[in-house]
């Protein structure tokens, strides 16, 4: 595979309490699957989906927490060099909403300043069990400068829209950054991945 089969590459990272449907969102988007009663995924580091927007190929690398959120033990390095964060909660679970400020603190601490954060209320297919109103979530998202979207990984509602909107925002952001061309600030991804260099250096 050549390095140039896409125009943009973005790293998107999912966070949020255990059981809110992060993995399901990713699998729905990347594979079109909704695995019911799915346990912890073993061996899957990140999923990749390439989408085309206005004739440009955007490669989205979507990272999941690998279960480390279960005991609040996500590594800081997970946040590094993420271009976007999807902060997910479960609309049928008040607790997962109440934990959002804690997650925002982690983002503040470890993620890049320029990171785009989207708040996602998942499981709208279970509307009859809703505990967090849309209005409350919208207000919260507004106060934190986040985009807000409600989704159902199960019914595939808004999942596509979530990732595609995000991709569009990332592109326009990237364009702006390229214009500003801030030489001093080190952007994520500026460092070199050793394995990539490795394969280039071997004769």
């Amino acid at each position: 595979m050549s390095m140039e089969d896409y125009d943009f590459l973005f790293k998107i990272v999912l966070i949020g309490n255990a059981g809110v449907g992060k993995t399901c969102l990713v699998r729905r988007f990347t594979q079109g699957l909704f695995p019911p009663g799915q346990g912890a995924t073993i061996g899957v580091d990140f999923m990749i989906k390439t989408v085309e927007i206005k004739g440009e190929k955007i490669k989205l690398q979507i990272w999941d927490t690998a279960g480390q959120e279960r005991f609040r033990s996500i590594t800081q390095s997970y946040y590094r060099s993420a271009n976007a964060l999807i902060l997910t909660y479960d609309i049928t679970c008040e607790e997962s909403f109440r934990c959002l400020p804690e997650w925002l603190r982690e983002i503040e601490q470890y993620a890049n300043n320029e990171v785009i954060t989207v708040l996602v209320g998942n499981k709208i297919d279970l509307a009859e069990r809703r505990e967090v109103s849309q209005q409350r979530a919208e207000e919260f998202a507004g106060s934190q400068n986040m985009y807000y979207l409600e989704t159902s990984a199960k019914e595939s509602d808004n999942v596509e829209k979530l990732f595609l909107d995000l991709a569009c925002r990332l592109i326009s952001e990237a364009r702006q950054n390229a214009l500003v061309n801030n030489v001093d600030s080190s952007l994520p991804g500026e460092g070199k991945s050793i394995s990539y260099l490795n394969c280039c250096n071997f004769n």
């Binding site: 061996g43 899957v44 580091d45 690998a66 279960g67 480390q68 279960r70 033990s73 997970y78």
Partner: peptide, 11 residues
């Protein structure tokens, strides 16, 4: 640690 977690390690 991330690698361990990806392969089922509990943290």
């Amino acid at each position: 640690c991330r690698m361990s977690a990806v392969f089922g390690g509990i943290y």
